[in-house]
């Protein structure tokens, strides 16, 4: 049960949040220009990193804002949270 520091609300229990998976996968601006392979890459392929991963979280039972998190998936340590649109912290 993580304690998550929502960038808008502060520290809250994990049960208030939902995870939206890998972050910084930008929806293609021109999907019709993509090959099936490229589109599949966007739709389904994930790094699924064991280690430090950038991911999206939503304070679903709180302010309902989406934000990004840097978390080590090998030990669940949260290294940083930052707002959407902000530059990811350099590790």
């Amino acid at each position: 049960m993580f304690l998550i520091n929502c960038p808008y609300c502060g520290e809250r229990d994990q049960s208030e949040f939902s995870c939206g998976g890998e972050a910084h996968i930008v929806r293609p601006k021109q999907p019709t220009e993509l090959s099936d392979d490229q589109w599949a890459e966007y739709l389904f392929m994930r790094k699924n990193i064991k280690g430090v991963q950038f991911e999206r979280w939503n304070h679903a039972h709180g302010c309902r804002k989406w934000f990004n998190m840097v978390r080590d998936t090998s030990n669940d340590k949260i290294h940083a949270v930052y707002k959407m649109g902000e530059k990811p912290p350099v590790e």
């Binding site: 929806r27 939503n58 989406w66």
Partner: peptide
């Protein structure tokens, strides 16, 4: 609602 908010906040701010 969650899906629409997701697109709005993250893809189309």
């Amino acid at each position: 609602l969650s899906k629409l908010e997701d697109y709005l906040q993250t893809e189309w701010p």
